[in-house]
């Protein structure tokens, strides 16, 4: 059990456990990931074999090839993280340094990509994308309600937007109050700023002042995002990578645990 309670043991165990939830995207992998998780608990020495992690990554490559339509972006981050762990385990003495470095770059790439898509989308900056997402995804309702957009107005607009996308020449004006319009734009710009800062802080060297902002920014992102749309596998994955980058520093771990709990509570109360 001592091996499980080390930073390496925690990284391996939580990553394997996250795979069980990732299995929601392709159920045949659930028993495999469950067995893998138990192996990291019951046979921690064996779980430190790099080859096993390459095999697990290969299993996810197969899943992505077999069922691409069922996969979402966090599955690809998980796949890259499995490979990062496999590479890190080739030099176990320096595992935490290597895994932390890999985690930094992976998070920087993910959040830089998300920032670029949003920055280049006029409909995101205007708030139209957030409004449309809220129209079609009830989980977004609390965010839109905070922006002064009632659930009733969304329900009224739904058939009209459906008609717009089903026919030629029809248009629909998202008539928002000044407050709602400004609020949605601020949410959009705030999201872009937060994601960009996360990307920059994780790309910055460990010695940089920005590096100190990594965990607070990522945890803040998780709190805001998963309190609205609780994607539990993604929350777990960001938490384990974030903790690895922070070398499992106690306060950071507690913050990430709280972030995951937010996702769990929101999911349970949907």
């Amino acid at each position: 059990m001592n091996q499980v309670r080390t930073p390496i043991g925690c990284v391996l165990m939580i990553t394997a456990g996250t795979g069980i939830f990732m299995g929601a995207h392709w159920s045949p992998l659930v028993p495999l990931m469950l067995a893998f998780y138990l192996a990291t608990l019951l046979a921690p020495s064996a779980a430190r074999n790099s080859l096993i992690w390459f095999v697990m990554a290969a299993a996810w490559v197969a899943a992505v090839m077999i069922q691409p339509s069922a996969m979402e972006d966090h599955v690809y981050l998980y796949l890259a993280w499995l490979v990062a762990i496999a590479v890190g385990l080739l030099d176990r003495d320096n595992f935490m340094d290597e895994a932390g470095r890999q985690g930094r770059y992976l998070l920087a790439i993910v959040f830089a990509t998300a920032t670029i898509w949003k920055l280049t989308s006029g409909s995101f900056i205007s708030g139209a994308a957030l409004w449309t997402s809220g129209l079609l995804d009830d989980r977004m309702a609390p965010l839109l309600n905070l922006a002064g957009i009632s659930s009733e107005s969304l329900a009224d607009a739904r058939p009209q937007v459906t008609a717009v996308v089903a026919s030629d020449g029809e248009t629909f004006d998202i008539s928002l109050s000044s407050y709602s319009s400004i609020a949605l734009t601020l949410v959009a710009l705030g999201t872009i700023a937060l994601e960009a800062l996360i990307a920059v802080s994780y790309a910055a060297p460990d010695t940089s002042r920005l590096a100190k902002l990594r965990a607070p920014l990522l945890v803040g992102f998780g709190f805001v995002t998963y309190a609205i749309v609780p994607v539990l596998p993604f929350a777990l994955l960001l938490a384990v990578i974030g903790c690895t980058v922070a070398r499992f520093e106690r306060r950071t771990v507690l913050a990430f645990v709280a972030m995951v709990l937010v996702a769990v509570v929101r999911f349970a109360t949907l």
Partner: peptide, 23 residues
Amino acid sequence: DRQAGSGFAMFSSVDFAGSRSVV
């Protein structure tokens, strides 16, 4: 679809599979 696959483009546009229609 922007919200599927490995794009990390969730919620970035009004266009995604759920907002499209097949007529």
